[in-house]
């Protein structure tokens, strides 16, 4: 399976289509960090929200860059389950790269401060919460991007619609007075929790929520791909 992961990552990087979502992500983060220095945890909480659509878009591009017939060739050689898993894994690897950029960038542009406020959390704890928020957003973004991929939607127009609806839904349903917050991945609740200082139970609850949402969305992806190679 690693062969197919590498082939797909290479295809994604070589076509230059990786540039657009990366630039969009850098632009959004630049705006986010342009306002001055912030505590790492709070800044990273918002950064994860900002990167969620970027990661989903990047996943859709990565899965769509391969011609349909090539995807079927890979399926014949590797088997259906491996072909699907390899695409998702390649998207996760690419996403980890983007997340790494998102975590390092604020230190380069002076968007965060390493000074600990009296009574505030330590630098290490702040960074750890930031990493957690990004890793919470990544699988959900990959699942959304996969559901928006051409292999599922069959046309570019529907794919963009699924992506846009998913992103807007995640942001709107994630607002603090949402009636059905569990319909969306907990990207917004995680950002709020970080700002408020989350307890261990909150971290566990949000992590479980993110895993359950991503697993459901990925099951939907696998089910749709069963009928449509």
């Amino acid at each position: 399976m690693s062969g197919l992961v590498r082939l797909r990552l290479a295809g994604f990087l070589r076509t230059g289509r990786a540039v657009a979502p990366l630039l969009a992500g850098l632009l959004a983060l630049g705006v986010l960090y342009g306002g001055g220095r912030a505590q790492p945890a709070e800044a990273y909480g918002v950064s994860a929200v900002v990167l969620f659509p970027v990661l989903a878009w990047q996943t859709k591009i990565l899965l769509d860059v391969e011609p349909d017939v090539q995807r079927r060739l890979a399926l014949v050689l590797a088997g259906a389950a491996r072909e699907r898993a390899a695409g998702l894994l390649a998207a996760v690897v690419a996403g980890l790269g983007t997340v790494a950029v998102g975590l390092v960038l604020p230190w380069l542009v002076g968007g965060v401060t390493s000074q600990v406020t009296p009574g505030g959390r330590s630098l290490a704890a702040g960074v750890a919460l930031g990493v957690w928020a990004h890793l919470l957003a990544l699988p959900a973004a990959v699942a959304l991007g996969a559901l928006a991929s051409r292999a599922v939607t069959g046309s570019a127009g529907y794919g963009v619609a699924v992506l846009a609806l998913g992103v807007v839904g995640t942001l709107v349903l994630g607002l603090s007075d949402s009636v059905v917050p569990w319909l969306a991945p907990p990207v917004m609740p995680a950002a709020r929790a970080i700002a408020a200082g989350p307890s261990g139970a909150t971290v566990a609850l949000l992590s479980g929520w993110a895993v359950a949402w991503s697993a459901t969305a990925l099951a939907g992806y696998a089910w749709r791909r069963r009928a449509r190679a």
């Binding site: 062969g3 590498r6 082939l7 290479a10 017939v69 060739l73 890979a74």
Partner: peptide, 23 residues
């Protein structure tokens, strides 16, 4: 397939080596 999907950013060598790994 009836039409080989040639719209891919690989050389013949890289593509076939990659597909051999996939196989």
């Amino acid at each position: 397939p009836e039409r080989f999907p040639a719209d891919q950013p690989f050389t013949v060598q890289r593509y076939l080596a990659g597909m051999a790994r996939v196989a």
